[in-house]
C-alpha cells in the first residue's frame, strides 16, 4: 500500500482577537492509495480546517501534512475539492461550469472531447434540462450536484469532499452515494470525505476517523469491514448496525462536549 497523504502530528491554531484558537491538535493518520476515509465530528470542531491543509489552503502551525511524500505547498488539480459552500461560478452557465476545468491547460482535455464529457455529467447529475441556465436559477441541491459534476469532470485521482451531499434529499443523496461508489470502482480514486451522517460514513468509507470537539483530535479510527464493490444491502447487515451504534455513541459524546464549549461563559458562572 503506497501512502498518498499523511498527517504527521499536525496542529493548527488561528490568531483571533481573543487570542489563539486551537482548531486542530496533534492529528496523525495516513491515507493510502485507494482508501476511502470518512471524517466525522461535531459542527465547528475543525474538519474543514483539517481538509484544507491537505487541499493546500492552510499550513499547519506545527507538524507536517504530506502528499505523495512531499509537504503540501498549495492546491493542485490532482487533489479535486468539493467545497462545503459549493463555489459554483455564478457568471457561468451550468454547462460552462462543468467545462471550466476541461478548458484549463493543466488538464489536457482536447476541445473535441469536452462537449461529450459535459453532456455525460449533465446527464448523471440530472442537470441536462438546466445546461444553459445560470446558477441563480438553481436550487441548493442542484448547485451541490453541479459542484460535484465539475469536480468529477477533470477526474482527479484524489478527491476531497466536504459534506458534498448535505443539501440533498434522501433519495438524491443515496443516488449520489451509489454514483460515487460506481465512479470509484471504475476510476479507482482515493477519497477523503467529511460528513455528519454516520450511515453515509459506514456505507461509503473503508476507514472512519472520528474527531473530537474543538480542537479536533482523533477520537478513534475505525476500519469498516465490508469489501468493495458495495451495494445498499450492506446496510441490512448486523455488523452495520453494530458499527452504527458504536460510532453514534462517540459522535454523541463529542457533540455534547462541543455544546458545553459553545455555552456562553456568563451562564455557567
Amino acid at each position: 500500500m503506497t501512502k498518498r497523504a499523511q498527517f504527521d502530528k499536525v496542529s493548527l491554531s488561528f490568531g483571533t482577537p481573543k487570542g489563539r484558537l486551537n482548531v486542530v491538535e496533534d492529528v496523525s493518520y495516513d491515507i493510502n492509495d485507494g482508501d476511502f476515509i470518512a471524517v466525522i465530528g461535531p459542527s465547528g470542531c475543525g474538519k474543514t480546517t483539517m481538509m484544507s491543509m491537505l487541499a493546500g489552503f492552510q499550513k499547519p502551525t506545527t507538524g507536517k501534512v504530506l502528499f505523495d511524500g512531499r509537504p503540501v505547498a498549495g492546491p493542485g488539480p490532482e487533489r479535486g475539492v468539493i467545497f462545503q459552500e459549493y463555489g459554483v461560478f455564478p457568471w457561468l452557465t451550468v454547462k460552462q461550469n462543468i467545462a471550466f476545468g476541461l478548458t484549463l491547460r493543466a488538464n489536457h482535455v482536447p476541445a473535441a472531447e469536452r462537449e461529450a464529457i459535459c453532456d455525460h455529467y449533465l446527464g448523471l447529475m440530472g442537470l441536462s434540462d438546466f445546461a444553459n441556465s445560470y446558477p441563480k436559477h438553481l436550487s441548493g441541491g442542484m448547485r451541490q450536484r453541479l459542484a460535484i459534476a465539475r469536480a468529477y469532470a477533470v477526474k482527479p485521482q484524489f478527491l476531497l469532499m466536504d459534506e458534498p451531499f448535505g443539501a440533498l434529499d434522501a433519495q438524491t443523496r443515496s443516488n449520489m452515494q451509489n454514483l460515487l461508489l460506481k465512479v470509484l470502482e471504475t476510476e479507482g480514486k482515493t477519497v477523503m470525505l467529511i460528513t455528519h451522517s454516520v450511515e453515509e460514513a459506514i456505507y461509503l468509507a473503508s476507514r472512519i476517523v472520528v474527531v473530537t470537539a474543538r480542537p479536533a483530535r482523533i477520537r478513534e479510527i475505525i476500519d469498516v469491514p465490508f469489501p468493495y464493490p458495495r451495494d445498499e444491502s450492506v446496510q441490512e447487515r448486523p455488523e452495520f448496525g453494530e458499527l452504527r451504534s458504536h460510532i453514534r455513541q462517540l459522535v454523541m459524546d463529542e457533540y455534547r462536549a462541543q455544546q458545553a464549549q459553545m455555552r456562553p461563559v456568563s451562564f455557567s458562572e
Partner: peptide, 16 residues
C-alpha cells in the same frame, strides 16, 4: 477567495 480556490483545485494557473 472561494472562487479562486475552486479554480486552483481544478488546475488553473495564474493567468487562467
Amino acid at each position: 477567495p472561494l472562487y479562486i480556490r475552486v479554480a486552483q483545485t481544478l488546475g488553473a494557473n495564474q493567468a487562467e
